Amino acid sequence: MHSATYRLNAVATMAFTGLLALCLAVSVTELAHKANPEASLKMHGVHHFKPLGGNDEAVLSFQMKGDLSSCFSWNTKQLFAYIKIVYETERHVRNEVTVWDKVMTSTEEARIEEAFLSKYALVDNGSDLRGRDVNLTLAWNVMPYIGALYFGEKVFAAKMPSEYMSDGRQG
């Protein structure tokens, strides 16, 4: 006859195997979900742009109209969206600076149509931002309950002002 511990081990193994199969099935269903987010993003204004300790610092505002709700599926826990400024300089081949971010937990939050100020200042390591062509990149990371994380991004061109300003003028 089998002991109680043997039977308990058999039940626990069966439950764990079933749970593992269920998690695998959930992960596979996420592969069929195709997100098609729509967005437009432009630099709305420059609120200050000045040298600061040998580096350039800028506070920007943006106009964004976007619908990231297609990133949500029944397995999506949250969506992390952020705006980064990407540019090249002579001293640094690739520069990426995050200037705004938001955690979204529902499809309603994933629909954005507003003008807003950057949460974080754009600080260049040097004084190379004047007149520089930059890419505004709206990126998002989808965090599912079960399965692998995935991400996407859309890129929009912009140009920094050619002169410093610190009086609150719009650029």
Score class of each variant (00 low, 15 high):
M165E: 10
G168K: 05
T137D: 03
G126V: 04
A39T: 07
G18V: 07
N36E: 09
L19C: 13
L41P: 06
G45V: 00
S162V: 11
S73R: 08
N9F: 09
M43L: 15
R130H: 12
H44Q: 08
K84R: 11
L138D: 06
V142F: 05
K34D: 11
S27F: 04
V28E: 15
E114I: 09
E114V: 11
S3L: 10
A25M: 10
L79D: 01
H2A: 10
H33K: 13
I146Y: 12
L8V: 06
I85Q: 08
A148M: 07
N55F: 04
K65E: 12
A21K: 15
A121E: 13
V93P: 00
G18C: 11
A21G: 15
S118F: 01
D67G: 01
S61L: 02
L136Y: 08
K42N: 09
L20T: 15
M14R: 14
A10Q: 14
E109W: 11
G53V: 04
K42C: 06
Y164R: 11
V11K: 12
V134N: 05
W140C: 04
K159T: 15
Y150P: 00
R7G: 00
D133S: 10
M160L: 11
A121W: 05
M14Q: 14
L60E: 07
P51C: 01
K65A: 06
K119C: 01
I146M: 10
